[in-house]
Computed example of a mutant assay.
Amino acid sequence: MSRRRAILASAATAFTMSAAPAAANTTQGGSQCGSLPPEPIPTQVPARESFLDVPGARLWFWDTGGNGPAVVLSHPGSGSALSWPYQQPVFAKAGYRVIAYSRRGHYKSTMPEPGNPGVGADDLHALVNHLGLRRFHLIGAALGGYYATDYALLHPERLHSLVILSSFMGISDPEYLRVTEWLRPPGFSAMRHDFLELSPYYRAANEAGARKWLEISDKSLGGHDIESQKLSSPISWARLETLRVRTLLVGGDADLYLPPPILRMITAHLPASSSIIYSKVGHSASWERPSEFNRDVLKFLSGGRFPRETCR
């Protein structure tokens, strides 16, 4: 069977699986018909704010400090270091040193030089070395997951674990790109970020929360188009399959970018990974279902294991 036909067969199988009843190794949880109750943003714990100079740019970051294991947060393309208010105090109170930074062009970090946005994993490496982190947990959301994946492939010895939230992970396989691009019709990218990244369930049930998400996104982007940073090298299926860091993939079944069949395509190339798919959640599980997301991620960071696929 040709490689193209094999990938199409994998996608067809994934779509069939998504329509079938839950498999024996899939954990079902939560109400199928209940609404998503709004969750107030918790009070943030004190954090030091500072800047780091890297070649061609200056990055803004915050750091809760402490002696616990470090967790570094890599934000989505629509966000910045501001994108984690539901995680910052919860992870810190669980004993972790929590760190987030804004990539070039995002909130408080300088714009990239035209045509020279830098390599995302290199900026991340500069930050963790500046902070003296020998090993740490890394969480990457959406576009931030590209650089988190690239970093994990470049520096696996520096990571305790890797969590990837709703990210294409920078995979460059031509058939994978064709399938994922086919899901996004003309004009898709021109739609508002909140429409694309928050599920209709959440936007209908929690208008205030959706407006706050959009406020953070608008502040993070500053009204600018920001050139995406580069990967150190293309991430092929073969390169991805060399990933040996403990990995948890997280998605939502209402994600317009990365629906469950696509997440399963990625998981198939990561034999040692686990995945969680949240019901009625879009591209932003950390915002739409923060209590469950935080609970599951903290369990994973502490060494907890999940079935190959968990549906909540």
Rank of each mutant, 00 (worst) to 15 (best):
H160Q: 04
F168C: 01
H125S: 13
A210C: 09
L131I: 07
A141E: 13
L198P: 03
W237V: 08
P174Q: 04
E175G: 02
G132C: 04
G120Q: 07
E227I: 13
D173F: 00
L196F: 11
A142R: 05
P185H: 12
V163D: 15
E227K: 01
E215T: 13
Y107L: 07
A204S: 15
P186F: 03
Y202D: 05
V119D: 01
F91S: 02
P200I: 01
H155V: 02
A142F: 09
F91I: 07
T180V: 13
A148E: 09
F188L: 11
L143A: 12
S199I: 11
P200C: 00
A121W: 06
Y202S: 10
I164Y: 01
L143Y: 15
R203A: 05
E181L: 07
M111N: 12
L196C: 07
I139R: 00
K230W: 14
G144W: 15
L127P: 00
E197P: 00
L133E: 15
I171C: 01
D218P: 00
G140K: 01
Y151H: 10
I139F: 03
L183F: 07
T110W: 11
L198M: 11
F188I: 15
E197Y: 14
K212S: 12
R135E: 15
V179G: 02
R135W: 11
M191G: 11
H130G: 00
V98W: 03
K93I: 00
E207N: 10
H224W: 03
H193P: 12
W237S: 04
R184D: 00
Y201K: 09
L214E: 14
Y101K: 01
S236W: 05
D122A: 14
A121T: 14
L131W: 12
A121E: 12
N206Q: 09
I216S: 01
S109F: 10
R135I: 10
S166G: 08
N116E: 15
P200W: 02
G118Y: 07
R97F: 05
V128R: 00
Q229V: 08
I226F: 02
I164D: 01
L133G: 05
F188W: 15
L177T: 13
S167A: 06
H130W: 08
L177Y: 05
R103C: 02
E157N: 10
P112M: 04
Y176V: 09
